[in-house]
Design a protein around this nucleic acid. Structure first.
Length: 406
RNA sequence: GGCGAUGUAGCUCAGUUGGUGAGAGCGCACGACUCAUAAUCGUGAGGUCGUCGGUUCAAGUCCGACCAUCGCUACCA
């Protein structure tokens, strides 16, 4: 009998925990950040309208050597530095009407504790080993390069001379979980979507993925979370950043309420960490896998990828100020096919606003107001529309109910 | 080099398991009209479905090769 209710809750079990990535605070928010966050905002609002139990997390990733250096350059402590940049993200989301529930920051003490708890569980499970790693290291990239990868002996990304480093690291035994993850993806085709990205991850899993370096010496990188079994090392990016999705719930005592219903939204550049590292980490720690990993493409410009060096970075707040918040948000979601790259152009934005919002919607509103005054004495009559079975309105209603079930 | 994605009307893109004459929105052309005229409504113009070949009674939809763009990834003379 309760078909509408059943229908409504199908796919989400009436609970919806949606996340954006926590953004790295080495630059100010750009169009891509705004897209992901607006997308999740709209999705969260949709599920709230369906009376589901919704939680929406966004935030900033605040550790790492790169940030430590940036703070030094700015003459600030790391905490002062991340406070400032993190604040810019928060302000931007406020200005764009993002109605998030949690603004997560990895520098918060409770996060440290949860990360250490998870690390300990993985350690106790025998999935951490000690090893040495050495090579040419780029401070900007925070990674090692092989000599073949270099251009003129310099980092191909940053054009700076690299230094040789050798250090002892802890490694997560990720390779152990490769067969498991493969099977998981094969049994659950919707786990990573759209399909193209699922295939990419399956492709990665066809060959050994190796073990994952998860620590850095604390004497070199004090700005990080110490390993619970070795105070001389701090954890490194992924075991810190990815766990934010989980630690936020621990802090609120809402793990059981929300965790089995996680919907991650990311851009394609961080597919590997979210599609490979994160699931294997969860498996090792004995935490259930997320529901879905939803992957979108890039906003490009007519000159290709946005980058600071090209000087073609699109600033979301400027567009919002110029065209209005609702028009801007509408454009973001309307003009990009989910999963694919999209070319941004201000002309396309203007045309979209004119055609869809000003002409179609605006005319409808203007017309309705006119008719209301002319024929109904300005009073909205009680509605008594019965959609004809199989008619356009009925089909539209059915389509709306199907939406968001996957 | 390997793996993968993409390549469909001027533009942005849809096209389940192969099957009536290949679609939408925007743009464009023509026409209509009112309660909306810097709007709305109707109609239309027709694109070798990247190229070549194959399978099939039948392919945009399957197979092979190739080309272009993009991404990930491995490197040797």
């Amino acid at each position: 009998m309760n078909t509408e209710q059943d229908d409504k809750n199908k796919g989400t079990d009436g609970t919806y925990y949606a996340t954006t990535p926590i953004f790295y605070v080495n630059a100010e928010p750009h169009l891509g950040h705004a897209y992901t966050t607006t997308l999740v905002d709209v999705s969260a609002r949709f599920h709230r309208l369906r009376n589901e139990d919704v939680l929406f997390l966004t935030g900033t990733d605040e550790h790492g050597e790169k940030i430590q250096k940036a703070a030094e350059t700015a003459g600030l402590s790391p905490q002062e530095y991340v406070d400032r940049i993190s604040g810019k993200f928060r302000d931007t989301w406020d200005e764009l009407g993002i109605d998030y529930d949690i603004f997560m920051r990895t520098s918060e003490p409770f996060h440290h504790k949860v990360v250490q708890d998870v690390l300990q569980r993985v350690y106790d499970n025998g999935d951490i080993i000690f090893g040495e790693y050495g090579g040419l290291y780029c401070v900007q990239c925070e990674r090692y390069y092989t000599e073949k990868e270099l251009e003129d002996g310099k980092c191909p990304q940053h054009d700076i001379t690299l230094e040789y480093r050798s250090e002892e690291n802890y490694f997560f035994r990720m390779e152990r979980y490769r067969p498991w993850l493969r099977k998981e993806l094969e049994n659950n085709p919707e786990l990573i979507r759209p399909e193209g990205y699922r295939n990419e991850v399956l492709g990665l899993l066809r060959e050994p993925i190796g073990d994952l370096s998860i620590s850095r010496p604390r004497n070199r990188v004090p700005w990080g979370i110490p390993l619970p079994w070795d105070e001389n090392h701090v954890t490194y990016v992924w075991f810190d950043a990815l766990i934010n999705y989980y630690s936020a719930l621990v802090e609120r005592g809402e793990v059981d309420r929300y965790w089995p219903h996680v919907e991650h939204f990311i851009a394609k550049d961080i597919l590997k960490p979210h599609g490979v590292f994160w699931p294997t980490m969860l498996k090792s720690a004995g935490i259930p896998l997320y529901q879905h990993l939803n992957v979108h493409g890039y906003w490009l410009t007519d000159q290709g990828k946005m980058s600071k060096s090209k000087g073609n970075v699109i600033k979301p707040l400027e567009l919002k100020d110029k065209y209005g918040i609702d028009a801007f948000r509408y454009f973001l979601l309307r003009d990009m096919t989910f999963g694919l790259d999209s070319t941004f152009s201000e002309l396309a934005l203007a045309e979209r606003i004119n055609a869809d919002l000003a002409n179609d919607l605006g005319n409808l509103l203007n017309r309705t107001m006119g008719m209301l005054g002319r024929y109904r004495d300005g009073v909205v009559p009680a509605h008594h529309v019965t959609p004809a079975p199989g008619g356009r309105a009925a089909r539209s209603l059915a389509a709306r109910r199907r939406c968001g079930q996957g």
